[in-house]
Design a binder for these strands. Structure first.
Lengths: 242, 242
DNA sequence: CAGTGGTCTAGACCACCAA
DNA sequence: TGGTGGTCTAGACCACTGC
């Protein structure tokens, strides 16, 4: 928006961009190790310290994971520590536990004007719509509507959703080569309508937490739009202000 | 909790702790500049690079602010950029604007068992309870109950709240020498009870966003507990997952 | 033991700001 | 113009991992 053109781009920033391009292009895949700092320094003709600073920033943005004595790895949504990075629901009592996802709808459609604006498409472009419920301890707790660009996620069906273990972002990553790296959320309180009430097993009118999310992949490209309705009678949405 | 005793404490970590102690002890006050990197390097008998890494971390935690060509400053809640770090309410249309705070209650009391647990006090210890409404564009939007330890905030009255411009954290900082550096929040959806409905000018039963916060000062000491009820018909709570 | 990331240093130079 | 933070280098050594 109001970004000022930098008068000067430090070397380590340029190196960071080069590494980013390799990540984006799939030269190193999620879960794999990238070359050692000394190798990268030789490749780019800079000192180890400069590579180090570039990698530091990428690790800070959760794109890479450093492991002392072993190497630096491309982050992946299959790691347990990533499991609750994008799902900030915690139970009132005890630790966040496993959940079950039940997708009850998955169909192709056309982007509305709003969906097109948000996902940077044109109205009428192919999209895929998913509706699902998340169950914690067998209890329906989250009802979600997910909208995806059809071109990227072509071939995504309810069956493939059901087959796939783990988080949906893990599926995006392994099956469609699209890694989510950041998301913006807008939270509101809303009353359950008849449909949501039925799906979540609460009376109509029950206050629910409405969570609208736009998720981005490399280069700040929006590739997922979803709206969730959360029951918050036995869970809460946790956040840290720092 | 399950932190492993580090077998080895890097030098820059020790320097960081020393700087932290000076901040905590008030050697450098909010808004002031701390000594230059070279001065600190001389004081602690380490290289500039080591001081640099320590300061980098403190700046990353929003305790210090670097300003190229000028120096490094102690962060303060009086800066505009801090204004919305702890208030994540944004209007549906337009940019976050100024708001007005009306404290309609401010009284001394005794800590309940729950308040004592959360604020690390003993039940019956002195506390101060504040109730206030935040107005955006003249419209009541947030209703908050704030609980503070009486020993730290002795002498806080409704008048002083009313006199003070800017955010309440700015007041804590300037009047009571207590700087908030981090907060945990738990979000839920709740229905407006009669009292909240009146204060916020909505029908009873209206879904509201419930935000419970525990805020911490240096050393992870909890010093504020509050619960807010947010109208979300023209505003939303923004969050970034990264 | 070899290889990786992590720390620390000393010094040079650059970009930015205030006076 | 001097002082501050910001970048970059080269090299030494330490801590951790896996073979």
């Amino acid at each position: 928006m109001n970004a000022v053109a930098p008068t000067f781009l430090p070397l380590y920033r340029q190196i960071k961009d080069l590494v980013l391009r390799s990540l984006e292009g799939g030269e190193w895949k999620p879960g794999e190790a990238i070359p050692s700092e000394l190798e990268l320094a030789a490749r780019y003709r800079v000192s180890q310290g400069t590579v180090r600073k570039a990698i530091d920033e990428l690790a800070g943005e959760n794109l890479l994971v450093r492991r002392q004595g072993r190497g630096t790895y491309v982050a992946t949504h299959s790691e347990p520590r990533e499991e609750f990075r994008f799902l900030r629901l915690a139970p009132d009592e005890g630790e966040p536990g496993p959940y079950e996802s039940r997708a009850f709808e998955c169909r192709r459609g056309r982007a509305s004007v709003e969906a097109a604006r948000i996902l940077d498409l044109r109205p009428g472009d192919a999209i895929i719509g998913i509706r699902r419920v998340l169950l914690f301890g067998g209890r329906p707790t989250v009802l979600e509507d997910i909208v995806l660009p059809g071109t990227i996620f072509k071939g995504l069906t309810a069956d493939r959703l059901a087959e796939h273990p783990g988080s949906i972002y893990h599926l995006y990553e392994t099956e469609f080569g699209t890694r989510m790296i950041r998301a913006d959320e807008k939270l509101r309180a809303a009353a359950a309508d008849a449909s949501a009430a039925t799906r979540l097993g609460v009376p109509a009118g029950t206050p629910l937490l409405s969570v609208e999310r736009v998720a981005f992949t490399y280069g700040d490209r929006p590739v997922e739009w979803r709206r969730g309705l959360y029951r918050t009678d036995q869970h809460y949405y946790r956040n840290v202000l720092s």
